[in-house]
Nucleic acid binder design. Structure first.
Length: 296
DNA sequence: CTCGATCCCTGGACGC
DNA sequence: TGCGTCCAGGGATCGA
């Protein structure tokens, strides 16, 4: 499941392989995950001028330069447009030789000026693509959370301590921190010894400092290892990442904690599986609506 | 503001 | 072999 490190890995791969290429034509199969498939015709003729990550989004910045053709009004309007790609759960974006047949779940293919095709493949279609003008991109980006790799101690603490939601929910909320998903939320909470159901406002300043530090360490480490491949993540070269070997909590239900050997537990917090060590990450005092019924 | 539930979608695991 | 069922999960949305 692509989170910040996986998306960063794909972006770096694409920067090496397709940056600067011109898109010659566009093929679209299923399009229910595309905001505005009709707009994709505008991709033709544009050059991939930059490739960036924004949270879990990839942005392919387009340029209408080159081609000596006269500039039309349309060219001017679509200037500085971008192709937004969110990989969702199972999305892959990678160049491919044109001769290779489409994967069963390839839904978009962009023919490049070197003969290859940049293909988007996504079995579950939880991903998203959109052709964005500069204006719509600005709208898309406003309200986004802080970049977890850049955020200062002060801002991190402020974003956590000012909220009454659980820390797990805050870490997953893209309007709080952009790019963190289930794996790296659990891994950083384990490392910081914070229970996922702790309320943001009840986290101490010291704990928040630790959490920020370990989150950054984990994300950076995961980027170096080219992300985590749980089931189907592959980078832009079609290769899996390695960071899953370093997971300490995620996916380890019943297995001994790396610190204290207590079996890792799995509970649902914020609607997501949350893996944690019940000893190292002590549960918060139950304070909320005390209505614990026996659960069927 | 915060929560849980629901929906989207398909492959993989599991039970019979 | 082949069903049927459940689950995974990012994010949008809606009602409580």
């Amino acid at each position: 499941m692509p989170e910040l490190p996986e998306v960063e890995t794909v972006v770096r791969g694409l920067q090496k392989s397709v940056l600067g290429r011109r898109i010659l034509s566009v093929w679209i199969g299923k399009s229910d995950f595309i905001d505005n498939p009709a707009e994709f015709a505008r991709l033709s003729g544009q050059r991939i001028a930059a490739i960036e990550r924004f949270g879990k989004f990839m942005l392919l910045r387009l340029a209408n330069d080159g081609d000596s053709k006269e500039k039309t009004l349309e060219d001017a309007t679509s200037e500085a447009a971008s192709l937004l790609v969110h990989l969702g759960m199972t999305g892959q974006l990678a160049p491919s030789a044109a001769e290779i047949p489409f994967d069963k779940h390839t839904h978009v293919s962009l023919t490049l000026d070197d003969g290859r095709e940049l293909r988007y493949t996504d079995a579950r279609r939880f991903g998203r693509m959109a052709y964005l003008t500069a204006e719509s991109l600005a709208k898309e980006v406003e309200g986004a959370g802080a970049d977890p790799l850049e955020v200062s101690d002060a801002e991190f603490a402020e974003r956590v301590l000012s909220r009454n939601a659980r820390i797990k929910a805050l870490l997953l909320d893209q309007s709080v921190f952009r790019g963190v998903g289930n794996i790296y939320a659990d891994e950083s909470l384990w490392r910081a010894k914070i229970h996922p159901a702790r309320v943001g406002s009840k986290i101490s300043v010291k704990e928040a400092e630790t959490l920020r530090r370990v989150l950054q360490e984990i994300l950076n480490r995961a980027i170096v290892m080219r992300g985590s491949s749980i089931s189907d993540f592959l980078d832009a070269n079609g290769e899996p990442g390695e960071y899953q070997r370093h997971h300490r909590a995620y996916g380890r239900e019943g297995k001994p904690c790396y610190r204290c050997r207590t079996p890792i537990r799995r509970i649902i917090v914020a609607g997501r599986s949350s893996y944690f060590c019940p000893k190292c990450q002590p549960a918060p005092r139950q304070r909320k609506t005390q209505r614990r019924k026996s659960r069927r």
